[in-house]
Design a protein around this nucleic acid. Structure first.
Lengths: 105, 105
DNA sequence: TTGACAAGAAACCTTTTGGTTTCCTATAAT
DNA sequence: ATTATAGGAAACCAAAAGGTTTCTTGTCAA
């Protein structure tokens, strides 16, 4: 999953498929690369579960499935406290500084 | 940044450096690869801003800087509603089903 | 039923990635 | 001063990633 979202084209695809189900043809129209290339990106996204495919007649339509991003959120949540700590530390520093100067901002 | 966290070794490095500042030597001791390889991973993390380096005598110590993950959080936040929608849709379905059966719970 | 069209499969190419080994430089320790 | 240690730099390599073109297959339209 981390790998899947590492590529900017693929992130862009997720974005595009957020609220619409589209066939490969239409999707690839949005990109400066071949249909086949886009198709391969879609496959990678599908393997990561980030996109669902549905066959409709002779076309394959894709839509977003954000579910797997839940895992990313859990991963992130772990680190959240560290950037919050940092802000906390910075804030304390600024306050000390203000005290020293009888500071105004 | 997305690229930086795509590699499992690098994610592991972040984890390791969460609450300690360590020199390359010690860090690379945790991995089955050469010191140089670890060093390169650290450089990539540093370029993404995810890790800060500090020279102390003849060693270079690294520590986590979670700040750039903020961006990831913003990116994720956008998609959060889509997996929540999914849950919402599921919930509605279950409720409909319960209604049909005169459901309890 | 014949032709057009959508899209995956296969083969191929180039660049990037993750790793190695070998060398070099700066700082310590004796 | 000399030797040992920490760690980056350079050159190199194999495998994976991102792309291309060509070929097939399955479905729709005439």
């Amino acid at each position: 999953m981390f790998q899947a979202i590492a590529d900017p084209t693929r992130r862009s695809l997720l974005q595009l498929l957020v609220d619409q189900e589209l066939p490969v043809n239409v999707i690839s129209g949005h990109y400066p690369m071949s249909r086949t290339a886009v198709s391969k990106h879609l496959r990678i996204l599908a393997e990561a579960g980030l996109v669902k495919e549905r066959k409709v007649g002779r076309e394959t339509r894709y839509r977003l499935d954000a579910e797997p991003l839940r895992e990313l959120k859990r991963w992130l949540a772990y680190y959240e406290r560290f950037w919050e700590n940092k802000l906390g530390a910075l804030k304390r520093l600024v306050e000390e500084d203000e005290d020293e100067n009888g500071g105004s901002s």
